[in-house]
Nucleic acid binder design. Structure first.
Lengths: 235, 235
DNA sequence: CCAAAAGTGTTGGTAGTACACCCATGA
DNA sequence: TCATGGGTGTACTACCAACACTTTTGG
């Protein structure tokens, strides 16, 4: 029983977020056929002695130099003709980076890797549009029951940033033009008890009252989770 | 750039359920080393021109003859030494079968495949204990927000069967000895509006008042889902 | 003093939880 | 007639949704 020659790759959907730019995804430009010149998700072959996660981190380092903050397996794509050359099965991951990792490292050639707002995407190679779509769905669903949104924010953030992030993820990724009620959202988040209210304020960026900064407390969340108390923020 | 020789398999965690036997999983006994004689999840190599799902269905047919009712990709396991012989990455699926598919087809040699209650599992080969554990977690989580529980019941069922199924999945898989309040559970399910109350009753199986039968209405559920109304049954 | 962003409470509706008795059948 | 399982309603609490004005700052 000889196993058939199927190649295994990993691909990463890396999300970044800032209040101004909204949700963005990291893409690389392909240098070779097929899809030469097209934009694609970063990724590549898994080496014989590395785990899938190691492969993702290695490829991201090689191709983009970006420092990721959260990594989770997304789905495995194995349709027979998803790559025109030969049979390739790809394990897709999704990753989150903080705003400060948002600009690409100097060594990355700007023509190689670039951030794209998810509202202004180029045409993607292979079945990457499908992978990206599934990643967005997963991210959207997941922020409502696990506090992974914090992995996209700075460590200390004003409440309004958290609120805008949820607005973006829950509504703008679906072309819904809706807003979150600030008071209700704050009540819910406070009730969860996973935020620490700091005695620091954001120096105003322009006009407006300076905002108090908050911090996510992972320990509190793990406590909740152990007790089986569910996070639940579907605004 | 030659891709490394990594083999790709699929494995299936097939769940069955009856009120009497509780939640069970379908295992096969290995005929060859490594782990010769041990029990393992059914599965095998993906062929060059079949999709991952086709591979699962083919292997299940070959190894167990069981007819599955629901299939969903679970997770991909790729730790470098999970198979002692060589690098094998496995895409795990989880499947649900109805009670009538519960007995194995005649052609299956009983020594090959067998159902095991999840409370009375044998030692499993490879990293299959981990895969099974993750499958159970997924099933438990998923019944609270999608109506996949119905895929484990007969088409027409008394309410108490649904209730016992949820008790089993939500509590007994975690060694919690708890019960669902019949009245509250029924209220919740009725409010969802995805059940049809039939004018048929179950002929008593022993003593007791005959129970009205119900049917799950997939169409109603799709309607709900389209409208974004969330299923939500964490008893 | 005006514009911009942050902060804050109340009310009404709805869903969740806890809880106990009667009904129909087979033995 | 008894044992078994099926069927039903109410009261309390907690969360959700809707909603508008005041405060602090920069220009």
């Amino acid at each position: 029983m000889t196993p058939p020659p199927i190649s295994l790759t990993v691909d990463a959907v890396v999300f970044g977020y800032t209040v101004n730019k909204g949700l963005s995804v990291l893409l690389i430009q392909r240098k070779y056929a097929p899809f030469k010149g097209s934009w694609a998700l970063p990724g590549g072959f898994v080496l014989e002695n590395e785990s899938l996660e190691d492969a993702v981190e290695r490829e991201l380092e090689e191709e983009t130099g970006v420092k990721i903050n959260y990594l989770e397996q997304l789905y495995t794509f194995g349709r027979p003709n998803r790559d025109p050359r030969k049979r390739i099965v790809s394990v897709a991951y999704f990753a989150l980076v903080r705003p400060d990792a948002f600009q690409l490292s100097a060594k990355t050639d700007a023509s190689d890797a670039q951030w794209f707002k998810i509202t202004e995407l180029p045409t993607l190679a292979f079945d990457h549009p499908e992978i990206l779509e599934i990643a967005i769905q997963r991210l959207r669903a997941k922020v409502t029951y696990e506090p992974i949104g914090f992995e996209l924010l700075e460590e200390k953030f004003p409440f309004s940033h958290l609120e805008k992030l949820y607005e973006t993820l829950l509504f703008h990724t679906q072309n819904i033009d809706d807003e979150i009620d600030r008071r209700n959202f704050k009540k819910k988040m406070k009730r969860l008890g996973i935020l620490e209210e700091l005695n620091e304020f954001r120096k105003a960026s322009g006009a407006g009252r300076p905002a108090r900064l908050f911090r996510f407390i992972p320990e509190k969340y793990f406590e909740l989770k152990e007790r089986g108390d569910m996070f639940d923020v579907w605004v």
